[in-house]
Amino acid sequence: MSVHISLCSACGHRVFPARLWCPACGHDRMHSAPVQAAQIQAWTVAPAQGSAPPAVVATVRALPDGPVLVVRLEAAPLRIGQRVDLFERSIERSMQGQPLPWGRVLPD
């Protein structure tokens, strides 16, 4: 279980999703790195879209070094600061076949 973020090969700056150039140092090479643990900064329930049901989405910070990601949650959290486990799930039409970041809220 993890989500693959992008790590700058020159300075180690972490982003998701990948950029063309590193926003911290301008380098153009990066590699993938897994993150698993994260902490909730904010969440909401996005309204249903067509046939898609309402979606719990959250802004989370990967622990311990980031980055901040917007992820889909399986169920709504109870409070800001709760821990989540990140995992990838492939959905049709997503990121040109790339999996999307999901999270599972961990019990307190």
């Binding site: 900064q41 969440w43 909401t44 996005a46 989405v57 917007v70 889909r72 039409r93 970041p101």
Partner: peptide, 28 residues
């Protein structure tokens, strides 16, 4: 591209969910 390939397929379509989260943080 972020909306098209990432946020919308995730279920986070349009600006409302994003600014809901900004608003929640501002309230906190």
């Amino acid at each position: 591209r972020s909306a098209q390939d990432y946020l919308s397929p995730l279920g986070c379509a349009g600006p409302n969910p994003l600014f809901a989260m900004v608003t929640q943080r501002q309230m906190a």
